[in-house]
Structure formats: structure tokens, C-alpha cells
Write a protein that binds this DNA or RNA. Structure first.
Lengths: 228, 228
DNA sequence: CGTCTATTTGAGTTAGCTCAACCGTCGTGG
DNA sequence: CCACGACGGTTGAGCTAACTCAAATAGACG
């Protein structure tokens, strides 16, 4: 299970540069900065840019009519956001924290990728890895309990951005409880209650609202029904 | 939202042959037949084949430790199953009905796709369309009620395999109630009850367990919170 | 015809939701 | 400097959609 299943083109098996970067001349790519909360693009906007997160975290989401929101992915540094199969974006994207992004490509309509033939195979593997990560997220959304979702989520974040310090793994939580809820298909209250329960059980510490320290990793893994 | 979001490489915007088929010499691709219920491959099996459904329907799924299952996609004719980013499959795949499949590729480890450079761009679009479809499924699993899920599901099936006859749209349901439940993240009982409720409301007819006739399409669309 | 499995229906339970109150922090303006 | 409002987070109480368990029914298939 990958936090950024939907948007990451990072390689999951062997290191490889994201192909689009290789097809773009250095001077063709620029930087863009966003303050926390600012929108990068919205569903329906003309999709003429693809971005790679350089610093900070973004979230991509979709809305349902009555205001219900589903966060599709959190985009961490190296992740790609804004890829679209046609001429408009199919999700919203906002900065979770102050963010720096590389603009990878402009004018999708006219520009073409310039692939080496030999990396096409690898590109397909990337797409498949992408899909594989999303499939794990399906399992989570469809079949896991609130506790299993939260535990899995923390484990994935720990894997990706955790730092080991004196027997604990500390994980920054740049997103709000509401973001987490909308990512996992829960409510804010349930997220909060579940974190509190983990704290009471001495599985985690919550030094402040935007960090978690995992005290008993094995216990957390058990709670996640670790099937990834 | 696509029924086969996870595995279909059919084009969603403009007609294009699946690229892998073009890279494979006719004599290199063979057929494989499965009886309903037979497994095509299992999670962890060495992934040396990619299949395209020719006839029938398959399901890809993942299991959680305690037997909970999530169906990732139903594969209908033209859909591709078995694509993997590494050397083993990451889901199970079984035939829902008697199925005929084209074996598209053998020995992934040695063989390579033979893409035209100019279709790489389109392939990437396909992958993105794929991802886009899966994202809609996220929205469904995470944020829709049982009724909305069932209604959306029926609408997608109707779109794909429905036939118009005397004011109704009739849709074959080759899969079991249990398959539907595991696709939508529900229980068999809830699926059954919801279908019964739709029948009582004269929105659908259920001539037999494996067909649905949509009598009031607009009503069904309302119930689906049609956000796709 | 008998067996097996899928489906439906009923009854009771519960995980997670809703609604509401409360707390702490932060930024703003008097 | 402090008061105030806004916002994010936590906690409590009660509700409900969907689940579990159980039993009846209906097809499917040998």
C-alpha cells in the first residue's frame, strides 16, 4: 500500500528516473511555489501542466455533490501530480503545506514525450506499479475497519517519511485530521478517537497535532492486519 | 467510473488498439479457455503472461488475512488482466463465467514490448485514463452509501453491456451477489436487500438472478448521486 | 429426485456516523 | 496588550446504516 498510489511515479522496485523528466530540456522546466491551502489546479481546468513535488506535500481530491470529499493521494517530494488522459484535470489539487513544485511539461496538446524505445517497457511497469498501489488502497477503503485504516496509514507514512530516534519512529503529519478522514473514508471524529485509542494503548505518542511517534511498531503492524 | 478500472486498457476517449497486441506477432499469441470458477492466476504466481479477455468475464481480487476479499475489477471482453510491475502477480484472477482469453505475452523477463515511439504518448494517456477510472472507484468505496454504490454499479454495467429493449435497459449480471458485495465493499445481504428495494420501487426488474432490467434510468441516476 | 449453493428475508447488534459541546492555538484588530 | 473570533482537534451522547447470525426459499446440477 502506498500513500501516493494514485500519483507517484517513483519506482517501487528499481531506481529509475521518471521518463518525462528526461524528455524535457532543463530550461523548459520551471518552479512553482504554493502556500499551504492554495490550489494548484481544480477538476475541469485545462490540463496543460504536469508537476513534480520538490518540497512540501499536496493532496489530490474529488468531490461528491453533497460536499463529501475523497482524497485520492498525498503527494510527497518526487511524486508526480496532474497527469491526465485528456485535456482537463480530473481531480482538485491543493497544497497541504508550503510547497515547491517543478513544472514538468507545458502544452500537453502540442508537446510529445520523447521516449527511448527501450524504456517503454519500464514505463509500463511504472504504470502497473501505480495500479498495484491503488489496488491496495481499494482493499483498505473497502474492507478495513477504522483502526486498521489508521494503523495502515501510519505505517505507510512511517515507511516513507519516518525518522528513527531512541526506539521510536517519528512521523510528521502535515495534513489535518479532516484530510486523513477523507483519505481513509472516515469522519474527523473517528480519526481523532482512533488516534486517542492508540495513544492510550501506548502504541503511539502524539507530541503535537502534526506529529506521531510510533512506540510499538509490532503492535501497530498487528492492528493494520498487515496485508500489503 | 469504470467497472474494470483496474485492468482495462480500452481507450476511453478515442479508439486505439491496445499497443501490446501490435507488438506481438500473431503466431506468438495463443488462446486459453477457462470454465466458470477456474483460476487464471493467483497472487504471488510468477507473472509471465498478460491476458486479454476475448469472451466471458473474469474477476481480479485481493484477500485480507481473515478471509475478507476485495474485488478490484471485473474483466470484460477487450480488457487486459495480469499486468504486473514485477515478476509476480499481485492479485488473484478467476473466471466468473466460461471465458476465452488471448495470451498476449510470454516470458516477461526476456521479452520486451515493441512500441512505435509515436504511440508511447498515447500509452501514457491510457495509463492515466486507467488511474482516472480507479480514482472514481475510490470515491465510491470511500464515500458512497450502499444504495449509491449499487446504483452506480448498475449504471456502469448498463453503459458497458446493456441492451435497450422496449424502454428498458437489460443488463446481464454474470457475477454472484457475493462478487458484487466484494466489489463494492458491502455484504451479500446488503446487496440483496438493496436490489430488492430498487425492485419494489419499480426502478429495476429482476427477471432472474443473473439479469437486471432498468425500468427508470433517470431514477437510478439520481440514486447514484451521479458524479462520474 | 436429492444435494448443494445462491439468494432472500428477518431479527438483533454494532461500528462508525451525526450533532453538540468544549478546548487550545493563532491571528487580528481595538 | 488583551479580547475576540476562527479554526482544528477532542470528547460525549445518541442514532442509524450496514453488519452478523439465522432460517427459509429457490435454483442449478448431477
Amino acid at each position: 500500500m502506498y500513500v501516493t498510489a494514485a500519483t507517484s511515479f517513483r519506482d517501487h522496485t528499481n531506481p529509475i528516473v521518471f521518463p518525462m523528466a528526461t524528455g524535457v530540456r532543463p530550461e523548459a522546466s520551471s518552479l512553482r511555489r504554493l502556500k499551504a491551502g492554495q490550489a494548484l489546479f481544480c477538476e475541469g481546468d485545462s490540463a496543460d501542466c504536469v508537476y513534480q513535488v520538490v518540497e512540501g506535500v499536496v493532496r489530490t481530491s474529488k468531490m461528491l455533490s453533497n460536499g463529501r470529499r475523497q482524497i485520492l493521494a498525498f503527494g510527497y517530494p518526487e511524486d508526480i501530480v496532474g497527469l491526465s488522459h485528456d485535456q482537463c484535470y480530473h481531480s482538485d489539487c491543493e497544497a497541504v503545506s508550503d510547497t515547491k513544485l517543478r513544472v514538468l511539461r507545458k502544452n500537453a496538446s502540442s508537446a510529445r514525450f520523447n521516449f527511448d524505445v527501450e524504456i517503454c517497457d519500464q514505463l509500463l511497469r511504472h504504470a502497473a506499479a501505480e495500479v498495484s498501489g491503488m489496488q491496495d488502497h481499494f482493499l483498505m477503503l473497502g474492507r478495513k475497519s477504522a483502526m486498521e485504516k489508521i494503523a495502515s496509514f501510519l505505517l505507510v507514512l512511517a515507511q516513507r517519511t519516518g525518522t528513527h530516534t531512541q526506539g521510536e519512529v517519528c512521523v510528521p503529519l502535515p495534513m489535518t485530521r479532516s484530510d486523513i478522514a477523507d483519505f481513509l473514508g472516515l469522519t474527523v471524529e473517528t480519526v481523532s478517537r482512533t488516534l486517542t485509542k492508540l495513544k492510550s494503548g501506548h502504541v503511539i505518542r502524539l507530541p503535537d497535532h502534526h506529529s506521531v511517534c510510533i512506540r510499538r511498531m509490532a503492535a501497530l503492524e498487528d492492528l493494520a492486519d498487515s496485508n500489503e
